[in-house]
């Protein structure tokens, strides 16, 4: 299985008491996906090039998807799997 790192545009909400939650992600072809819920936020390595990213386990269209944040680059990415 091949993993590709795809950086994406993300809308995020900054909480009054600290913390950040992605609310939507925007695909390059113009599609928009709302993040229904963030289930977990945890430091976790990805399969692609990234040092110490933070993994957001999100509910998108009813399914669990990982969205990664790279604090050093202030950048979001997803892994696209090529079987």
């Amino acid at each position: 299985m091949q993993y590709e790192k795809v950086c994406v545009e993300v809308a995020a909400k900054f909480l009054r008491d600290g913390g950040m939650r992605p609310t939507a992600l925007f695909w390059d072809d113009g599609r928009k996906f709302a993040v229904e819920r963030v289930k977990y936020i945890e430091p976790a390595p990805s399969h692609v090039s990234s040092v110490l990213p933070v993994r957001y386990t999100c509910l998108i269209e009813g399914r669990e998807k990982y969205l990664w944040f790279e604090p050093e680059e202030l950048r979001w990415f997803v892994e696209v799997i090529h079987p």
């Binding site: 993993y3 390595p45 399969h47 692609v48 090039s49 990234s50 040092v51 110490l52």
Partner: peptide, 8 residues
């Protein structure tokens, strides 16, 4: 090991 994180 860190380099392998940067380039899997």
């Amino acid at each position: 090991s860190v380099e392998m994180l940067k380039s899997p």
